[in-house]
Every structure is written in structure tokens, then in C-alpha cells.
Design a protein around this nucleic acid. Structure first.
Lengths: 342, 342
DNA sequence: CTGAAAGCGCTTACAG
DNA sequence: CTGAAAGCGCTTACAG
């Protein structure tokens, strides 16, 4: 491997000049620029980024901490992150936590070991003490996306989860549903809490009850939706609608309903969350809440870039969602329909 | 950030001793080990991996080049890679090529810039001249998984694509299908070529015809399966079975059939490839070829580890596949059934 | 515009 | 067992 030293020798200049010619072509004569350039080409020079990092104290790399690479929701988020990162000459290290807190936390070491300049975390499962110093400020350049720590000073971009749950509920109630169940994610998670709050607030507003057994806690997988639906759909007073906190669990519910011979949407309405590509390929096509996934990724990366360049960040950005009504929702059977004046 | 120098000062030893105490506790007195360790703890020392890399000339990082992060087939492969990598103290840099050859090729620079020690490529779309030197040997530690360059000296782990296609075809023919269409991936790709060969060989063996318009070229997306099925299913002599080169295209076919009111499997059999989790959640559940995805990832990473440690690699590893018959395949209607003696 | 020199933070032969 | 010194390959203030 050729180094600046080799180029310097071949071009008959100093290593300082080589470095300058390659990095700032303006600070150097056209003649030397040419000499250096052709020597570099001749030697097939590739700069050693490690040496550069050690000298400049920056790696031009960021880590994104991914809760679970098996969750398809994150695909477009990552695409958004990578697009902005690459456009700005940053490399992206993707750390899959496999739903494990310790593994997620471990990726933070990359910034202490100087292999990354900042962190873009898609999970709020990391103990917050690992992220904030005594004064409550982030210990290193850090942005959260999708998930977040409420009332923390960590810059974050996310949707309005409470509002998004409310529009789902409003739509369902307007159709006449009142026996509405819910399959959540991890219930200690801020996202689940916000969505549950939106759900409960809407129900309360319409003076509707939520029996305890109508709330089930899943893990965002196809399987957990499938398994939890078994319980929900066997209830004596079976719900006429199920609101799932992501699309994969909703697709799991669809399968269970099919097996139990419960017709969707005639006998059961199902709503998902995220709007992953598979929504349009389920039977029936899944009604859901659309999240601007790629935009979330892009925005979060831009925020991190701002922090990395020393600007003080916009602390919190909320992006819009949208209810998408497809084939899994309709008014419940007449005998189960709510009678209200709208 | 504390450095070895700081620790050395606090512990009253040299930086050399600090380095040794931390890395090889055996080469040092118990007393100094203790002194150094406690000084390091006290200062909250985190080693600078960049400096270490520059000195040791290895980054303990590998890149995996991913054709498209949107293709769910790769999820478990990556899990397998990461598991073995982390167990061996290697970091994994995931490079998403977004189905773009130039982007894929660009990730190779990470090894020239010393940010990665080796490459695990899941795509064979990179021009091979970028990988091999004049004598046909890999320019750097390199392993292929899933895809490969036929007759190259690049170590690779993959399935037997030809055989896998044959078992699909045999199963279909045994059921009595003879009008069998195929939706492939990129047809210049070695995987598609091998699967097509298995397909054609089987058909030839049974003396069956494959009309040109029975072969359609897709891009592994849900949408391409959906779109190409429109043509296939509108043919005057409509196929009674479609073999898709991945599950997502097969699920796209299912949707189109539903819309055209063609009953699967009664009027149309569909077979996918890969066995992604969604297979069990489609309607009907998708028959497919199971690939040992996680094992492929693990095996490929072990191969790369071998190369990295100077051992000469096992050049090619083939892992077994398995036909999984679910709800999308059955014998064709009687009037379209092949009459053969078996 | 160019060069000599220092230094980023480690590790490791080489002496002792 | 321990220390002094060199060096990995860059970049950048400092002189000139």
C-alpha cells in the first residue's frame, strides 16, 4: 500500500505538500497539484482513513442502534439515514441489538473508542444513565428517532403517537365500533404508553369502556399478533375491532381470525401501524397508520449532522402521520353497533 | 478522555507497562496489574481503537455488502454473520447497496482505507475485476455468501440452486402440472441462471415445453411479482403453476391472482423461494424452498475468520435446502393434468 | 506556496 | 518483569 511518503518521494515534494495537494487543491500550485496527483495515481494511492482519524480526531462514521433487524419497519428509516449520511461523506455502522438491552448499550462503546463520532438510536431501551451526564446533557452527539425519552434533553424526531392512536380510534368509533381491543408493544416503552394514552383518551371521550382483557402486550412480531389474537378472539364478549401497534402483529391477527373462521372485516376490523409494504399484500389489505419512514430517517440524520458540526440542535421534531383505510376495517354488525349522535 | 499516558502517570509506571497490563495480564506482576487496573478504572479509561488499529494494522471490522436492505431474505443471514463476528470480537459494518452496482463497489474502499479487514459480499453484481488481481486471486480477504462468481477462486457458501429448482419442478410435475411458468430475478445473475437451468433440465427430462412467454424477469420485490403475474395470468394458454425465485414475488403473484379471481391453489399453484417468515402469513400459506439462512451467515463469517487468521480457506461450501409444501400447491384441474407413468 | 517537525494514542521489538 | 524509544500514516500550526 502506497502512503503519502511514497507519493512525496515520487513527486519530489514533502509529505505536507502531498497532503495539501490532495485535500485542498487551492492551497498549492497547479504544477505541484499535477505532480502529486499523477504520482498518487501511479502508485494507486488510497488514503489510510485510520491514520487520518487519529490525527483529525474524527471518524466520519456514525452508529445507528437498531432494536431488531427483523422488524421491517426500520428498513426505510435506515434508507433515509444512509442517504443523508453518504451525501455528507459519513459512513454508517448499523448495530443490531436483537431486542437485547445489553447488546444495544454495547454499541455506545464505538464512540468512546473513537470509531464513531455520534449515535443515532432507534431504541429507548438503553438505560438513560448511559446517555446523559450528571447535568442531564447527552454525553456525546446523540439523536433519537421513533422512540424517545420523555422530558429528556435528547434531540429526537418522531411522530405524534398519541394523536395517531386517536385518529385510529375516532375512525373506528365513527364506524360504530365500541368493543375495541388493542395489542401493544412493550408497555413500559414510551411509544406504547403514548399510543395507549391516545386510545384511552378517545374511549373516555366517547364514554366507552375498555375491559382489562382487551389489552394484550406483544413484541411486534408476526407470531405475537397471531398468538395474542387467540385469546382476544376467544373472549366471551369478543371485540369487534383490534388496534395493533404495528403491522406485523396485525397480520398475525388476520391469520388467526382466518383460522377461527372470523370474517375480516365483516365480523372483525383490524388496524395496524407503520404502513410497511406487506400491508398491501395481506388478505384483506391492511388498514393502518402511515409513518413517513424515510423522512424520519433523513431528518434524524440531518439533526445529528447539525450536532456534529457544532450547531445547537432543534430539540424535537414531530412528523405527520396519516390513517390509511384499506380492506380490514368497516362498521361492525348491526347488533354490535354503537348508537351515538355524531 | 483518558489515555495510556494518563494511566501511566497515575499508576507510576510506563505506558508500555500499561498497555501490557491491560492486554496481557500474564506478562506483568500481580501488583502492577492491580495498580494499572485501578488507575484505568478511576480515570474511566476507554482504549482508542483507532490508534490501536493504526499500530496493529487491523481494524477488527468486516464489511458485509448487502444488495438491498429492503429484501427480507437477508435478515437472518445478517443475524448469523453478526453472531459469529461478535463472538470473535469483530465489528460488522453493513453496507446497503440499494441494488446499485456502484454503491456496492464503493464499500470495497473500506478495506483499502484500512477501516475493514475483510469483505463478506452477499452480491455478485460487483465487477469481478474489483475483487481479483491479475492472477485470479482475491485482492483482500473476501467471502461470498448466497451469490457467487462461477469458476472463480473466491471462497463462497451457498445452496445448490440448480438442485433446489429441480425439487420444486419434480414436485409440481408429480402433481400433474406441465404448464409451468417462472418468475426469475436478474437473469444475468448466477443464482437465476442456476435455478433456470434446474427448471429447464427438469422440464426437458419430462419432455415438457416451456413457451418463451412463460418466463418473466423480476427484481425480487412484491411489486414485480404482482405486475409480472398480470401478464402471465392473462396468457391465452394460462400456466397452471408459477415458480417464483423468491417469496416476495410469489406473494405478489398471490395478490394478482386474487384480484383476477383465479383461485390458489385450485386453479393456480404458486411456489416461492427462501422461506421468509411471511410465508406462513399469506393466504393461502406459501409453499416454498427453505434456505438455512442463519447457518449460511454463520458459515460465511467463519470462513472469513479463517481467511483473516491466515488459514487457507475451504473454497466452496454448499448447504442443504428443503421443499416446504404449504397451501399454495396442489394438482391442477383434471383437464390440465399431465398423464404420465411414474 | 512549501517544508521540517510535531503529534494523534497506541503497541512492540529491544535492552536491561 | 519493566522502560525508553520507535513507528503506524496522516494533518497542520509554524516558519520561511
Amino acid at each position: 500500500m502506497a502512503t503519502v511518503k511514497d507519493i512525496a518521494k515520487l513527486a519530489g515534494v514533502s509529505t505536507a505538500t502531498v497532503s495539501r495537494a490532495l485535500a485542498n487543491p487551492k492551497k498549492v500550485t497547479d504544477a505541484t497539484k499535477l505532480k502529486v496527483q499523477s504520482a498518487a495515481d501511479q502508485l494507486g494511492y488510497a488514503p489510510n482513513a485510520i491514520a487520518r482519524s487519529l490525527r483529525t480526531q474524527e471518524s466520519k462514521t456514525i452508529v445507528v442502534i437498531l432494536p431488531d433487524i427483523g422488524n421491517h419497519f426500520f428498513t426505510d428509516i435506515i434508507k433515509g439515514i444512509e442517504q443523508i449520511a453518504h451525501k455528507n461523506a459519513y459512513k454508517v455502522l448499523i448495530g443490531d441489538a436483537g431486542n437485547d438491552v445489553d447488546r444495544a448499550t454495547k454499541y455506545l462503546e464505538l464512540v468512546y473508542s473513537k470509531q464513531a463520532d455520534g449515535v443515532l438510536s432507534l431504541t429507548a431501551d438503553i438505560p438513560i444513565a448511559n446517555l446523559l451526564d450528571a447535568s442531564g446533557k447527552p454525553k456525546f452527539p446523540l439523536v433519537m428517532a421513533c422512540e424517545y425519552y420523555p422530558q429528556s434533553a435528547i434531540p429526537s424526531v418522531h411522530i405524534d403517537n398519541e394523536y395517531s392512536a386517536r385518529i385510529v380510534l375516532e375512525s373506528l368509533v365513527q364506524m360504530g365500533h365500541y368493543k375495541i381491543a388493542c395489542i401493544t408493544g412493550d408497555r413500559r416503552n414510551s411509544i406504547s404508553i403514548a399510543r395507549m394514552k391516545g386510545f384511552k383518551d378517545s374511549m373516555k371521550k366517547w364514554r366507552l369502556q375498555i375491559p382489562d382483557q382487551y389489552i394484550a402486550e406483544g413484541d411486534y412480531s408476526l407470531l405475537s399478533g397471531y398468538e395474542l389474537a387467540a385469546g382476544l378472539l376467544s373472549l366471551e364478549d369478543r371485540p369487534s375491532a383490534i388496534f395493533c401497534h404495528n403491522d406485523e402483529m396485525a397480520i398475525g391477527v388476520l391469520k388467526r381470525a382466518r383460522e377461527m373462521d372470523i370474517k375480516v372485516p365483516e365480523q372483525l376490523s383490524v388496524v395496524g401501524f407503520d404502513n410497511i409494504p406487506f400491508c398491501e399484500y395481506s388478505t384483506p389489505e391492511l388498514s393502518t397508520v402511515h409513518q413517513p419512514k424515510q423522512l424520519i430517517g433523513e431528518t434524524a440524520m440531518k439533526l445529528l449532522l447539525n450536532i456534529l458540526s457544532g450547531k445547537k440542535p432543534n430539540p424535537e421534531i414531530t412528523l405527520p402521520t396519516q390513517l390509511i383505510v384499506r380492506g380490514t376495517t368497516m362498521p361492525p354488525p348491526l347488533d354490535q353497533r354503537l348508537k351515538i349522535d355524531i
